[in-house]
Design a protein around this nucleic acid. Sequence first.
DNA 1: ATCTTTGATATTGGCGCCAATTTCTCGCAT
DNA 2: ATGCGAGAAATTGGCGCCAATATCAAAGAT
Lengths: 225, 225
Amino acid sequence: MSESELSGGAVRGKNRGKSAKARAERHEALANLLAAEIQSGALSPGQWLKQIDIEERHGAKRMDVRRALDRLVQKRLVVHLPNRGYHVFKPDGRLAQEIRAVRVILETSAVDGIVARAREEDIAQAMRLARHFEALLLNGTAIDLHDANIAFHEHLLGLCGNLELAALVKELRGRISSAVAGQWQKRSRIEQSNREHLAMVEALAARDTEALRRLVGEHIQQSAE
Amino acid sequence: MSESELSGGAVRGKNRGKSAKARAERHEALANLLAAEIQSGALSPGQWLKQIDIEERHGAKRMDVRRALDRLVQKRLVVHLPNRGYHVFKPDGRLAQEIRAVRVILETSAVDGIVARAREEDIAQAMRLARHFEALLLNGTAIDLHDANIAFHEHLLGLCGNLELAALVKELRGRISSAVAGQWQKRSRIEQSNREHLAMVEALAARDTEALRRLVGEHIQQSAE
DNA sequence: ATCTTTGATATTGGCGCCAATTTCTCGCAT
DNA sequence: ATGCGAGAAATTGGCGCCAATATCAAAGAT
């Protein structure tokens, strides 16, 4: 098997200076980028994702595009039709409702752990994140608000002590954020979310489990339309 | 190897019958096959999955192997180390405990919907599945018992009215089934599970929500070691 | 004798090319 | 004019080849 005669010493294909790790995680980075674009609404539901477009737009290689799209299929963010291509998943109303119900179950159940484990500095951090969201109310982009909202909720959920639960909710949130991509079109709703964030932090600071549980449940259901 | 050589025929286009679909889903079938091997314990945790071995063993192409392995990474069944390869994920004790906790939350929350929606025929079917499990107590293989157990629980959960919740629990169960692959080694535990199945059906038939909730929670926690 | 270095081997991973398939376009017959 | 169908263009998907990297083995140095 070792008849590797290096014929023609011509140096072909110059290797890039990229590290191996960067290469290995390139498709993952692309998948996250596309996921963010979908969740932020930059890519609208139903839209076709042509491999060549992504390839050129993000300067990625064909293989990375394929693996990234395949990963998004796993995450149920895009749909794959063989020999037709990939398109952004158009969430069903029923699906969104069911996922919201699951989120209510998980996140309200997590409240006990959150209240039990939250230290003063954790609460202070939660307050900082809530205020950061508030600060973006005036002159923040939709994506900024989205990120700040995610950061707040992930911090809170991370306090519950069950990393799997937190990861699961994160995944679920990403699955329907595209469905309700336009949920923050109305400023009144953003402001309402902000008030609820602050109320949640207050309830946490007061160690009021029941109040926090109620607020969390309402906060999730509030995003329904 | 010539596949579709349409000689002299004016028929073109519409050849979407099965060959194309079979190709498109080949990697998915391989992924499911490998997942089953992992969950059944045929592939032990930590074991390296060399691409060439899988390729030859299952008569698959390299690409399908890669895609299947990548999919299993998404499912958290295998771990990928760049330039090192893929190996079967070795579940952590903490992870298993956290997933069990999430399952308790979800499945006990599903009880309300189950009791509310279960018709008499659904209960009868649950009883059939429980008895099928019982019938396998004596001369059924571990895999038979595993499948029968899955069938029982999936039927029950399917009654809750939230398809996403059911799918989520199914995924979670598959994620730690490898961890506790040897959970049915002790006959006493199998018999205990069987008794709990029957008790759950009884509670459902009696529409006793609280009893069913308690049984479900205990049944999940009981599988801990 | 043991540790280090260096070469050999095995395995993974990236990339380009072309076939398979679908979609588009335009000519043709009715 | 319109429906039909064949060729053309575009897109996806499969596959082999070779480079990059890790692992193994053996020779050499201290």
